[in-house]
């Protein structure tokens, strides 16, 4: 016991410097992140702005019940999960593939041009992007016009007004906007690869695919894992702005997700308690998923975020 204490003190001394560096960081995180977390109490009381939280009527889990019991709850859950699963699969792999493809380009100039243009859509605000998408995909839009002209279809496809197209459209539009942007991360991670490793591999007769498989992927794996675990934690986030510009009344049954619902009722109607309750629910589920995924990744891939 005494021995153990001694060891701990010794190791603490060694790490004194690191702890010292941590102090300001801990103060920061407490002030800017943990203090406002006290506001989560709002989810359990009938909150009116301007009133002290302690004076508000305590209602327990009322707002959680209200949310789960609302007639569109199952629809919200279905839409949220469907779209975030699409993002976590198709939308997740796309930037990795894109980064790999860019990496394989031989012409340095072309590579730079592709890289610098690929993220442009990210900077177009959703409002502007929305009106462009309308011009492209509406019944009279450019896409339908081309399809009609080359005879692939007889009647315009109602991409924007038929609910069943919505999830796919949402995924594609998100990919258009974010693939280049998210790929920056992987491209930067790849640039950390030690060229000597590749040279050594070449000597052993490694093919291009082999280089990707045995050198590049292992290097970016920690980055992929971080992205993946965080992505899983956000499974109940399935876009917000996108739906306000891509969605319309006729497709509402397919786009209305937890966040748009909580915005309409929580923020617009001023029920902050409801909004907070929904947010808290999402957080708890997110943290549980992160914890489970992290455990899995540590077991199977030997990489984890904590």
């Amino acid at each position: 016991m005494k021995e153990k204490m001694k060891h701990m003190i010794k190791s603490f001394n060694k790490q004194r410097q690191l702890w010292l560096l941590c102090i300001p960081i801990i103060i920061w995180v407490v002030v800017f992140a943990y203090v406002p977390m006290g506001g989560l109490i709002i989810a359990f009381v009938d909150y009116i702005p301007g009133m002290s939280i302690f004076d508000c009527e305590f209602v327990g889990l009322k707002y959680f019940r209200d949310f789960v019991m609302n007639p569109t709850f199952l629809q919200l859950l279905r839409n949220t999960l469907a779209m975030s699963l699409l993002s976590l699969t198709v939308g997740f792999v796309a930037p990795i593939l894109f980064a790999l493809c860019v990496n394989e380009l031989n012409n340095k100039k072309f590579k730079t041009v592709v890289q610098t243009t690929s993220y442009l859509p990210y900077f177009i605000s959703w409002v502007v992007a929305g009106s462009m998408i309308f011009i492209m995909l509406s019944n009279e839009g450019v896409v339908n016009d081309i399809l009609l002209r080359i005879g692939l279809i007889d009647a315009p496809v109602p991409f924007l007004t038929e609910g069943k197209y919505y999830w796919v459209m949402y995924t594609l539009v998100n990919m258009w906007k974010a693939t280049g942007w998210s790929a920056i991360l992987y491209i930067s991670a790849m640039s950390g690869i030690d060229t000597q490793l590749i040279e050594a591999g070449a000597v052993d007769g490694m093919t291009r695919l082999g280089v990707v498989r045995y050198v590049i992927l292992p290097t970016i794996l920690p980055t992929i894992v971080v992205q993946w675990i965080i992505g899983i934690g956000g499974i109940l986030n399935a876009g917000f702005d996108q739906h306000l510009v891509l969605g319309n009344a006729s497709t509402q049954a397919y786009w209305d997700v937890i966040d748009t619902y909580s915005y309409r009722y929580g923020i617009q109607l001023g029920y902050y308690s409801l909004g907070t309750a929904v947010g808290l629910m999402k957080s708890v589920i997110g943290v549980l998923l992160v914890w489970a995924t992290n455990w899995f990744c540590r077991k199977k891939l030997d990489t984890a975020i904590f």
Partner: peptide, 16 residues
């Protein structure tokens, strides 16, 4: 300490 004061004043809603 400072944090606790901050939290309290914030939650009280400082109406003021």
């Amino acid at each position: 300490m400072v944090a606790a004061t901050l939290a309290a004043s914030m939650l009280a809603g400082c109406g003021g």
